[in-house]
């Protein structure tokens, strides 16, 4: 056992629903995870000081009413932006999965607004409906801490509002050149019509990362959609590597 396990704060809010399995994935990767209600953080932002990793898990925060992740993102933007920004500047890690990714983007924690305008968003799937399916993913560049050493992944997506849209081509070009469009769907498996097949995006430091696919849903080999066909069952699912990377960053 490692001497110092990194502590992970799994932030939950009304409608968060992937907090248990995400905490479990971090624990399996060697971290110590704690599920904390956003009200506790609003009451006492210094809670963050105890943690090395902050994770926004999947779900439907506030029902995704208004737009996916919008209400919680607005809450963070107005009431916790400073402490969260300090957390990020202190060299710690922030991960957003699915609804967490939507919250990271819409709160401005992942991409800072310029002239008060957001650079990108996650919006309705091209199909207009919620979709649960698996997709093959490729990693672009080596900037993202969570994707270190990973070239490809096979993970499930399950969302209605996961289509990544940049404000314009210039913004997309810049993000791509900067290595921030870190995780992409294999082109013919893009489940939502995301521009440039973006499945996951990191900030300029590579320490803040959001993705629509669910790495915590492929930890055990029997979560693979056709594991009963596989000649050699892997020891663990592809998703665990992301959590291990986060833990090892502090190792």
């Amino acid at each position: 056992m490692k001497a110092n396990k990194p502590n992970v704060l799994i932030l939950r809010a009304p409608g968060t629903n992937c907090d248990f399995e995400t905490a479990y994935a971090f624990e399996l990767a060697g971290a110590s995870a704690e599920r904390v209600h956003v009200n506790r953080l609003l009451e006492d932002p210094s809670l963050l000081d105890r943690f090395e990793i902050l994770c926004f898990p999947g779900g439907f925060s506030f029902g995704d009413d208004v737009a996916a992740g919008r209400i919680l993102a607005t809450e963070l933007r107005h009431n916790l932006f400073e402490p969260l920004h300090r957390f990020k500047e202190a060299g710690r890690l922030i991960l957003g999965i699915c609804n967490g990714f939507q919250i990271l983007v819409k709160s401005g924690l992942l991409l800072a607004d310029d002239e008060a305008q957001p650079k990108a968003t996650l919006t309705w799937n091209k199909s207009g409906v919620y979709t649960d399916r698996w997709a093959h993913l490729t990693v672009d560049g080596g900037k993202c801490v969570f994707l270190k050493g990973i070239t490809s992944l096979y993970l499930p997506v399950a969302h209605a509002e996961g289509r990544f849209v940049g404000r314009d081509e210039a913004v997309l070009d810049q993000l791509q050149a900067n290595g921030q469009l870190a995780l992409r769907y294999v082109p013919d498996e893009n489940p939502n019509g995301a521009e440039r097949n973006v499945a996951g995006l990191c900030d300029e430091t590579g320490r803040v990362f959001g993705l629509m696919p669910h790495p915590e849903r492929y930890i055990d080999p029997t979560q693979h959609p056709y594991w009963t066909r596989l000649e050699h069952l892997p020891e663990v699912g592809d998703g665990l590597a992301l959590f291990r990377n986060a833990v090892e960053y502090f190792g």
């Binding site: 399995e21 999947g58 649960d132 849903r217 979560q223 959609p225």
Partner: peptide, 19 residues
């Protein structure tokens, strides 16, 4: 496909299976 059949992380045999 419109239903999340994997949340909670315990899925073993999904409603749609095969290659």
């Amino acid at each position: 496909r419109q239903y999340d059949h994997e949340v909670q992380g315990g899925s073993v045999v999904k409603p749609l299976v095969g290659a």
